[in-house]
């Protein structure tokens, strides 16, 4: 079976303040349909760069990126990125409804567009706020609008760049659960970038750790925890704690010693 999205021997070099900087080297990753894969790494490890390349927003310097078997040039159809910076991603001059319609309004008729927008807003629980402007909503709601906008295009792959990184712990937990529900409903393939170990273990089917400079994949770990997962009971399971322990170790933490990096 061809993976939904994959990269082989990926290499990325970006211009920096003092010459070119090699960010990624020899990265191999392939994500199957309906799989939830997290990319974990410390800040500056190149995980956002990797996601931008997968989303077709940044060209690779070397290696190959494929979506459904075809090499990608520019953002492929059906692959949508959700950004951490929701405030700059939503258009302040459009209402929530018209923001959600942005990706589909040019391709669909009015009736189908409205139906899809309503469907997407229902999935994130914001249908009753559809006619407000995004800047009147809380941060968590704004991020849900951005997710709804991606969902309205019925994507095969959702690329999420630290989507809950700017939110408080309570909001974050409820959005994590909402995302799980959405995925079980839509069977979307999700690649999820985060620096939060607990979040990665809790949400993923599989997680990869990026480290080194230039970065490559240091650890790949399957997360066979049963679904649906629950914020309290799943996080109390022995296997959850064991997995969490291994990821922290891979990131360079050791028991009884302060973190190195």
């Amino acid at each position: 079976m061809t993976p939904t999205i994959s990269c082989t021997d990926l290499e990325v070099t970006l211009p920096g303040a003092s010459g070119a900087v090699n960010i990624l080297a020899g990265v191999n990753l392939s994500v199957a349909k309906a799989e939830f894969v997290s990319i974990l790494g410390t800040s500056g490890s190149g995980k956002t760069t990797l996601l931008r390349v997968l989303g077709g927003l940044l060209p690779a310097t070397g290696g190959e990126v494929r979506c459904d078997g075809t090499p990608i040039q520019g953002p492929p159809d059906g692959v949508v990125t959700v950004f951490q910076d929701y405030a700059h991603s939503l258009l302040p001059w459009r209402t929530v409804r018209r923001n959600v319609a942005l990706g589909i309004e040019a391709r669909l008729g009015r009736a189908e567009r409205d139906e899809r927008v309503d469907e997407a807003l229902t999935m994130v629980g914001l249908l009753e706020r559809a006619d407000e402007y995004p800047w009147r909503l809380s941060g968590g709601m704004q991020q849900r609008v951005q997710i709804a906008r991606a969902l309205a295009t019925r994507p095969r792959v959702l690329l999420m760049d630290e989507p809950f990184g700017a939110l408080d712990a309570m909001t974050k937990a409820s959005l994590q659960d909402q995302l799980q529900q959405v995925q079980s409903l839509t069977e979307t393939t999700i690649v999820f970038v985060t620096h939060d170990v607990e979040e990665a273990v809790y949400l993923s089917d599989r997680l990869v750790v990026l480290n080194g400079s230039p970065a490559d994949i240091g650890l790949t770990l399957d997360i066979p925890l049963p679904r649906p997962r629950h914020q309290i009971s799943t996080k109390e399971r022995a296997d959850y704690l064991e997995l969490r322990h291994r990821v922290y170790e891979a990131l360079g933490h050791t028991v009884g010693e302060p973190a190195r990096g």
Binding site: P75, F83, H88, L102, A106
Partner: peptide
């Protein structure tokens, strides 16, 4: 914001729509 410029790209908007719907109002 670079995010504002990436948004229409990831949603697959054409160059024309990127200019009229994002750049011009912004």
């Amino acid at each position: 914001s670079p995010v504002l410029l990436d948004t229409p790209r990831t949603l697959g908007l054409s160059t024309w729509h990127r200019t009229t719907k994002i750049l011009t109002p912004a």
